[in-house]
């Protein structure tokens, strides 16, 4: 927590230093992970043995056609799901054996989600939407408000705090969602087709925002099937039939 007397600039620096680990410190360690689903009688191998490391301040895109296991991998990375076999360590903690509530706490503290459909609460203001993760983190109303306002200003929505989602444009809604993802200062931001419901120009703005967040030191994982979007990332992981097909860095 920042000291009450700190100016916004200092608060920001303090926030960054709290989560600061040298680039290269491993955040996500996935080793030979598999996932089986039962679809009626049929058993689906969504992941057949995936190994992947993600370090702090990486900008990663996960690509693949539908059925490649891309969504399953994303759910796994987001701690929404646990692997059938294999190891998953998040910041050194073994996630594969955690209970539902422990996973919820990891998601709350470590992961910021950005969804294709924004997933904002329709009847709550931007501010209330952004405060939501902080409620589950158990922060007091004053701190919640302060942090949520800051996050909204950071995404350029300082003037839209009391607006409800239906009073905002698509791009603004996604900005609120990104503010919500940022507000608890997570280790990674996990964006699932973040521009899928936006026109290309707005999409480009959102990608620019993610770029800025990356520049500020955040770790970003984008799941997409669009090459244009993946081009923003510094590293692209391609999946096919539940296996990693390629894992390449790009400029």
């Amino acid at each position: 927590m920042t000291a009450p007397s700190a100016s916004p600039g200092q608060a920001e620096r303090a926030a960054i230093s709290r989560n600061y680990r040298p680039p290269g410190a491993v955040v996500i360690e996935i080793e030979n992970v598999t996932k089986l689903y039962k679809m009626g009688e049929e058993i689906v191998h969504a992941l057949r043995g995936v190994s992947l490391n993600v370090s702090r301040n990486e900008y990663l895109a996960i690509m693949g056609p539908s059925g490649s296991g891309k969504s399953t991998l994303m759910n796994m990375l987001g701690c929404l799901d646990t692997p059938t076999s294999g190891k998953y360590h998040f910041s050194g903690k073994n996630v594969s054996t955690m209970t539902d509530d422990e996973l919820a706490d990891i998601r709350n503290r470590e992961i910021g989600f950005v969804f294709q459909t924004f997933n904002l609460l329709p009847r709550s203001t931007s501010l209330a939407n952004v405060e939501l993760p902080l409620i589950y983190a158990g922060l007091s109303p004053g701190i919640r408000r302060e942090r949520a306002e800051q996050a909204l200003r950071d995404v350029g929505l300082g003037e839209r705090m009391m607006h409800k989602p239906n009073e905002l444009s698509g791009g603004q809604r996604q900005r609120v969602a990104i503010a919500r993802a940022l507000v608890n200062r997570p280790s990674i931001i996990l964006a699932d087709e973040p521009t899928g419901n936006l026109d290309s120009r707005t999409g480009e703005e959102i990608m620019q925002l993610l770029e800025d967040l990356y520049e500020q030191g955040n770790t970003i994982i984008v799941v997409t099937h669009e090459e244009d979007i993946a081009r923003h990332a510094r590293r692209v992981v391609r999946l096919r039939d539940g296996l990693i097909e390629s894992d390449a860095r790009q400029a």
Partner: peptide
Amino acid sequence: TKEIGTRKALGARRLS
């Protein structure tokens, strides 16, 4: 249901 999913993704526990 979708809201419940979102809340869980944001860190809501079962009790919440």
